[in-house]
Design a protein around this nucleic acid. Structure first.
Lengths: 230, 230
DNA sequence: ACAAAAGTGTTCACACTACACCCATGG
DNA sequence: CCATGGGTGTAGTGTGAACACTTTTGT
C-alpha cells in the first residue's frame, strides 16, 4: 500500500478472529467452522476474516460477527494481537482476536449449515488451526476476569433469565461448582436485578422466577462507589 | 504483499508503540520523544517503529525497546491493538501497543539527546500524537492490574531495592498513599524476598536494608497454591 | 405422596484497615 | 542531642466459604 508519509515500509495482511461464546445445555460453547479455504481447508477454525481498506479493527470484527450470527449489537472485546512470523501457514498475517457473547436462544440454525459451523463445548474442543487454540485460551482467561468485574454475563441471555440458569452459566465459565446460597446472597446484595412475576417452568415443577438486569440500578450502584463482583 | 493463498486482500502498515515506564524521584515516568518524522514532526510521541517483513510483533517491540534504551531482556507485555481507520495522520497504520518496565538506574543519558527523548512524570504528561494518550491510559490500567497480581514490580529495580523505595514505587503506580505497616506485613507474609546485610544510606542516616526478589522462593510460594497479591 | 428443583440464614475463618511509638544514625 | 526517615504489633471490621432444611407443584 502506498502511503504518502511512510513509503518504504512493509505492509501486512491483517485478520480478525472471533471467539464466539454461547450458553446452551448448562455448558459454555464456542462457534467453530470448517475452514473454507486452503491451506488447511476443512480443519476446525475460529470465525475470521480479513480487515478491509476502510474498516477499523472493531468494524472488521463486527462484520465477521454479523456474517456468522446475523445478530447486531453483539457484546465484543479485543483479546490480543498475534503476530508470529509463521503463525498462518497461508502467508504473513497479523491477527487480532476478539471474543463475543451471543444469545444462543435466538440463534439461526440455518446459518450452521450455510457455513459448516458448529457449537462446541469449550471443555472438549477439537484441534484448531494455527494459533487459534492459544486465542481461545487467552479469550477464556479474559472472559473470566471480565465476568467477575463487570456485568457482561447478562449478554448471554435475551433480557430475562432465571437465577439457576445464571448460576449454571457462571459455573460453566469458571468450570467449578459454586454455592447456591452464597451466589444468590451476593447478587441480592448488589440490587441490580429486577425480579419478574412470571416463572420459567421448563426445568422444574415449581418454576424459577425470571430476572432482568437493570442498567439504571447498576449505574446508581457504581455511582455509590460500590464494586461489582461475582 | 503477494501471498500464495490470500492474493486479493488489502495489506496494511503495522507499527508497535511502546509505553516505557521507569521509576525516578519517587515518581512513575514514561519515556517520550519528539516525533522525528512528518506528519506532526516535533510533537510528543511514544517510542515506536514499524514491524518488518521477518519480524514478529514481539520482536518488533523488542527492537524498538533496544533502540531507545540499549537494554536487553526488558520486561514487556502487549497492551492492545489499535486499528481506527484514521488513527495515524500519516497513513493507514495498525498499531500494537506494548508496555515495558526499565531500570532507570542504569539508563544511558546520552540516548536522551540522541533521540530527543525525555522521561516525563505520568501525572503531568503533555498532549501526545494520534491515540497515544489512550495507549498510555490502557497501559497504566493493565500495569496496575498486573502489578497487583504478579511480581513484575521488581523489574523496575536493578536486583536490590529497599522497602521504602518499593513502597514509594507502589504508591506512584497507584497514585495513592498506603500504610507502611500493612504494606510490609503483606510482603513479609509472602516470604519471597531476601534481606541483605547492607543498607542504602542515601536517603536517611539510619539507612534502609536492601532486599532482593527470590525467584526460587516465589516458585515455591506459587506451588503451595498461594496467591501473590500486593 | 413423592420426586425434583427453587429458595432461604447463620457461623466461622481469614484478610484488610486503621492506628502510634521506638530505633538508629549523622551532623 | 536532635532531626530524619526506618522499622515494628494489635484490635476491629468486612468479606468470602462452609453448610441443611423447607417450599412448591406436577405427576
Amino acid at each position: 500500500m502506498a502511503t504518502v508519509f511512510y513509503p518504504d515500509n512493509t505492509t501486512f495482511l491483517v485478520a480478525v478472529d472471533c471467539i464466539i461464546f454461547g450458553f446452551k445445555n448448562k455448558e459454555l460453547h464456542i462457534l467453530l467452522t470448517r475452514r473454507p479455504v486452503e491451506p488447511l481447508k476443512g480443519e476446525w477454525s475460529l470465525m475470521g476474516g480479513f480487515m478491509e481498506e476502510n474498516e477499523s479493527l472493531n468494524q472488521a470484527a463486527e462484520k465477521v460477527l454479523y456474517r456468522y450470527t446475523q445478530q447486531k449489537g453483539i457484546y465484543m472485546e479485543q483479546v490480543n494481537a498475534y503476530g508470529e512470523v509463521d503463525r498462518d501457514a497461508g502467508g504473513r498475517v497479523v491477527s487480532v482476536a476478539f471474543y463475543a457473547l451471543v444469545r444462543l436462544e435466538e440463534f439461526d440454525t440455518s446459518l450452521a449449515r450455510k457455513f459448516d459451523a458448529r457449537w462446541v463445548k469449550v471443555q472438549d474442543l477439537p484441534s484448531l488451526i494455527f494459533d487459534h487454540e492459544k486465542m481461545v485460551e487467552d479469550a477464556l482467561t479474559l472472559l473470566r476476569f471480565k465476568v467477575s468485574m463487570q456485568p457482561i454475563i447478562f449478554n448471554f441471555f435475551d433480557k430475562k433469565f432465571t437465577l439457576p440458569a445464571l448460576q449454571d452459566l457462571y459455573e460453566a465459565i469458571y468450570q467449578m461448582p459454586i454455592d447456591k446460597r452464597n451466589f444468590r446472597k451476593k447478587i441480592a446484595a448488589m440490587e441490580i436485578l429486577d425480579k419478574m412475576d412470571d416463572k420459567d417452568k421448563s426445568s422444574s415443577k415449581r418454576g424459577a422466577h425470571y430476572y432482568v438486569f437493570n442498567e439504571h440500578k447498576y449505574q446508581k450502584f457504581t455511582k455509590e462507589g460500590k464494586r461489582y463482583s461475582l
